[in-house]
Amino acid sequence: MADPKQQQYLSMTFAGSTFLLPGTTGFTIEQRENLTVNEDSDGNASAWRVVRNDRFPAYALDGHFQVVRRVDWERAVFVDSTSGSIGVIVDDVHLLARAQAQVAPFTPLGTAPTSVGPLFGGAWISENGVALVLDPNALVAYLEGLGD
């Protein structure tokens, strides 16, 4: 991860929790109407972004990053990956001004949940408390493990 103090961050809120994504990460914000919603109650994906002959899933997550199925959503953030992109459904998403995000390095304790390491690599300290900064590679690795 680049020097966290020099970066811009994307703020993503879902399930009442806010997480930051480094602005150097490739991402696309898609509106629900541009996605193919999973009408089947089975499966983990809530929707797919269809690009030519490929489709890339988007997942609704709870505050513990467990998959939930929900109907009341309007947009998803798709993070670029080596296989295309993979998405998270969000309630709010906006870019934080560079000066606004004072991000400190942070090492989560315990065993990392993904093969590429911890899900979080920093923390934004504000008057509202702590918002964790996602490691894009770990986020992609985690989401790719969820399947359709």
Partner: peptide
């Protein structure tokens, strides 16, 4: 105020802001 950490082991209650540092 304590922020929960997804995938934290049960012995981590959360993270707090302290002197511009995040502390488990």
């Amino acid at each position: 105020s304590m922020t929960p950490i997804p995938f934290a082991p049960p012995w981590v209650s959360g993270v707090i802001a302290w002197r511009n540092t995040a502390v488990s």
